[in-house]
Design a protein around this nucleic acid. Sequence first.
DNA 1: CGGCATCCGTGACGATACTG
DNA 2: CAGTATCGTCACGGATGCCG
Lengths: 213, 213
Amino acid sequence: MPPRQQRRRSYDQYCASARALDAVGDRWTLLIVRELLGGPRRYTDLHTDLPGVSTDVLAARLKDMEAQGLATRRRLPPPGAATVYELTPRGVGLLPVLTALAEWGAPDLAERRPTDAVRAHWFALPLLCRLPAPEIPTVVEVVVDEGVFHLRLGGGGPAYGDGPAEEPDARLVLDSYTCRELGEGVLNVEQGVTAGRIKVLGDGPFAAALRGS
Amino acid sequence: MPPRQQRRRSYDQYCASARALDAVGDRWTLLIVRELLGGPRRYTDLHTDLPGVSTDVLAARLKDMEAQGLATRRRLPPPGAATVYELTPRGVGLLPVLTALAEWGAPDLAERRPTDAVRAHWFALPLLCRLPAPEIPTVVEVVVDEGVFHLRLGGGGPAYGDGPAEEPDARLVLDSYTCRELGEGVLNVEQGVTAGRIKVLGDGPFAAALRGS
DNA sequence: CGGCATCCGTGACGATACTG
DNA sequence: CAGTATCGTCACGGATGCCG
């Protein structure tokens, strides 16, 4: 048997960016991080939300990420016993990398190819750097055609989550086209509200701040 | 003959980060961007400052980047006629991605392997997000053991450059160990100056601001 | 000599099948 | 559900050759 699956060759450069790419530059790794930024996930969930990744590559990446301290595997207690993968603080620290990538790549969403897969929570990252920063931890639920997700602004831990939130401070209802323009920065929430393309629900101060600044 | 070198398979996801990784997720691409962020470079310079990249991969990446509008090739007028590669504004827009990667990867520089290549301007990216933002375009020259580079803060165009600056507003002299700690954020300029590990030269307002805030 | 193109060996990747 | 096993293909790294 081969002693150990040889990791991809390092760049061998004394450079912070090159070191980062040594760790997360492999294909699929940053997209796995994107999924786990939404909270703990099971292997099968990761596999269904990352269409195109093969099972062995997903397993290898998760093993690498565990060995590098980016993620941990944890076995949930019964009932519903399952093993879930979760980001460590070091893994959560990749959030700025993914938001920077999302901000740069947002214009490319203008072209929507028929082969593209879509998940609602994929819209979360571009939004994270566009919404105003609250003074206290705030949860915003976002409802688009493709589904529901929620953003956790101004707090630690996971930055967003799939599905509805328990007690959101505000709720945004919009279509995915508007959501994309929001993430691209060509539209802000206030403009979308006055144009009738965004509904802001909720009566807290953050909802009011979103409606009109 | 094959009609065209098949690009790496797209992730085919309607997600801004995935789109970005479709464009710059290939091996070496972001490191080529890192080099070009320092200004126009010739093919041979890129090849020597990216040890390990093979000639054909470098040529293919540059062609891809040109096709995607990230870089352009330009022929310098004689004398010294040479073709140089230069980032487009879209390519320069990747600076936040690289600074985020550098910030995340900076702790990994604690281990300095004997196989690591070093270039002075590789220290520029971690520094860019740590130095105080000036109110007007400012050039800071940095002198470390391995060489000299300069940072262009608060302006457009390339973010840094290899070699000395023409008329720097301030000049930092330090060793690479201190430079790393500066980029990692465990040390700021003022602390380094009082500890005698950083010399700040220059008499402009920004040099004064660096010495003590 | 700079700027690639070609060839080749290795290994990473993608798809499918299969197992505890 | 959570992977492992197998296999074909292609991308990558290294060396060399070509051509202005």
